[in-house]
Design a protein around this nucleic acid. Structure first.
Lengths: 352, 352
DNA sequence: CTGAAAGCGCTTACAG
DNA sequence: CTGAAAGCGCTTACAG
């Protein structure tokens, strides 16, 4: 394997010139540059990673702290992991994957050994050990997600709160006065993930502000759990004309199936919004209005901010990505009120 | 950050003694060892990763080549990625995640820069660029999966062929003479993944050997695709009494739903085996007999073999993990033959 | 059982 | 615009 001396010899220059030519940290004569480039190509030279780490100030590696919990939804998790890896590569960084149960152990290890230049913290909990750790550790970090205490942290995430407000506002604009929300399973809230709470809080506040009736139901396991949650909503809101779903794809699929089974048409009988979804809602039947949760967006920005931290250009702060609303036809005007006493949705249960 | 000199000074020894004490590569006086251990603890010393990489012969990092393709099933993929990361940690290795589109680029990069000591190659295709690359590259590797040409490679995987044989044999033992197989969607076979082909080939051969009638159907998209595939099987095998499923969880779920809709009871009317499944089939209704595909098993062994390669103890070879059969009650004796002419399964379609 | 020292392959002041 | 050299923090013969 060729080293920098081989390249220097082949190009007829000193090793410092090779180093500078490669890093671009000082100007190099055009012919010199070309001879070096040529030598690098011919020899297939790549700087030795260890030497670079030792001599330089940078390792060109980021740690990605991505704990996989029992209830983690794999497709979304995967999307974020991939998005971080790809964003990092764009800045010529490689990604070291930290998945350990002991969330903080790996971070301390790579920090102390100077293996990485910085950390991306994924799926931060409201009261996350890792967030606390970042205060003590001498390592720039970007947190994807917003823990309860963001002091001293650089956090990036979709604005789930605004996304909820946007959903409710859209529906209120169309005359809906009774809006249900189908959330994640209860254990997702209990385990302390940050974003479901933010969405739910935003939903409740927006409903209060818009003076619409609202209710929230959290589905149990499987299609039966979703059915029960819908029952709960229809019971609490007999005149429910709109549904906001903030949950993973299988639940949304089950919910649409169940509505179909009950003979409830979207959007004629019920307007539906899929909020903060990291999957494609245009293949649903019917395609759903969506506020997309785009892993690439958060992760690109997160990595970008991490790089900026390394360059000392950015202070801790919270950066919320504004939600975007995409219409696909699943939201319509609220149906005219029915005469009191008659339940609009007979609630004919599916027969499974 | 404390370095080895600080530790040596604190312990009153030379730095080489510290280094040897930490690596265990030569015997150290008991008191000396204790003083060093004490100093390490007090100073929170961690060897600098770059210095270790440069001076030593090892980086303590593995690359994990885990391409995420459009049809990759995230939960299974995730399970393998996590299993590799956890296995690596057990040998004190960290994992660098390579996900790039250009499958080989990242491998060449980390190989040339000596960033990693070895590579785990995940989800290898039958004719995988990466397998070719491993021949040229100076880097030990373990491949999870079996490409068509395994020459010079160290490959580990569940024995999908044997798993298929085992499934058919079990059913044949119970008197089943007409066995269908529900496979993955066609595009999974087309894109060249190695394991679906191995299972299918094993199924076909075992069916021929056991002299049972057999048919294979590959589902299209969604529940409708699964329904059509089942139709196809019942058409090709009007007396089908057993079904082997080698596909991902959503398809198996849809298939069970569909059987239920058709009034077909498992195992009374139809015996069902879930083969090479990396998810829990005991929560299905009914719970399914399963030949589990355990990510930890393949990945532990893969990492172990990679470590052994580094120690120069192991030559290229293919290592197939024998399948295990777990009964859960979804396989029964074949029902008695019906009188010719009467279709056993009226095929009453679900009403969605 | 322990130490002094070379050397891994870079980066970066320092010097011109 | 370019070069000679120090130094990053380890590991590992070499020596005793």
């Amino acid at each position: 394997m060729a080293n920098i001396h081989d390249v220097a010899k082949a190009a007829g220059v000193s090793i410092s010139t090779v180093s500078y030519a490669l890093s671009g940290k000082r100007s190099i004569g055009e012919q010199t540059r070309q001879r070096i480039a040529e030598a690098v190509r011919e020899l297939g030279y790549r700087p030795n990673a260890g030497a670079r780490m030792l001599a330089g100030t940078t390792t060109h590696i980021f740690a990605l702290s991505a704990p996989f919990r029992p209830d983690t939804y794999a497709p979304a998790h995967m999307a974020f992991v991939l998005a971080v890896a790809q964003a990092a590569r764009r800045f010529d960084y490689d990604v070291l994957l930290l998945t350990e149960d002991e969330a903080t152990g790996g971070l301390q290890r790579v920090a102390a050994s100077r293996l990485v230049d910085g950390v991306i913290v994924l799926d931060v909990a409201r009261n996350d050990e890792r967030a606390h750790l970042m205060h003590d550790i001498d390592l720039p970090a970007t947190v994807i997600g917003i823990p309860d205490n963001t002091e001293g942290l650089l956090c990036v995430d979709l604005d789930f709160r605004k996304a909820a407000e946007l959903s409710v506002a859209r529906l209120a604009d169309r005359g809906h006065r009774s809006i249900g929300m189908l959330g994640h399973p209860p254990r997702i809230y209990e385990r302390g993930s940050n974003f479901p709470h933010r969405f739910r809080a935003g939903f409740e506040e927006a409903a209060a502000e818009q003076k619409v009736k609202s209710a929230i139901a959290l589905p149990g396991h499987g299609p039966a759990g979703v059915r029960d949650a819908l029952d709960e909503l229809f019971e609490k809101l007999p005149n429910m004309t709109a549904l906001v779903m903030n949950c993973e794809e299988p639940i949304q699929t089950s919910a649409l199936d169940e509505l179909d089974d009950r003979g409830i048409s979207v959007p004629e009988d019920l307007s539906v919004i899929s909020a903060c979804s990291s999957f494609d809602t245009s293949r649903f039947s019917p395609p759903l209005d969506v506020i997309p949760l785009i892993a690439e967006e958060s992760c690109n920005r997160g990595v970008e901010l991490l790089v900026e931290q390394l360059e000392g250009e950015v202070a801790p702060h919270v950066e919320l990505i504004p939600p975007r609303y995409e219409s696909r036809g699943s939201v319509g005007d609220a149906p005219l009120p029915v005469k009191p006493g008659a339940s609009r949705h007979p609630g004919q249960r599916g027969r499974r």
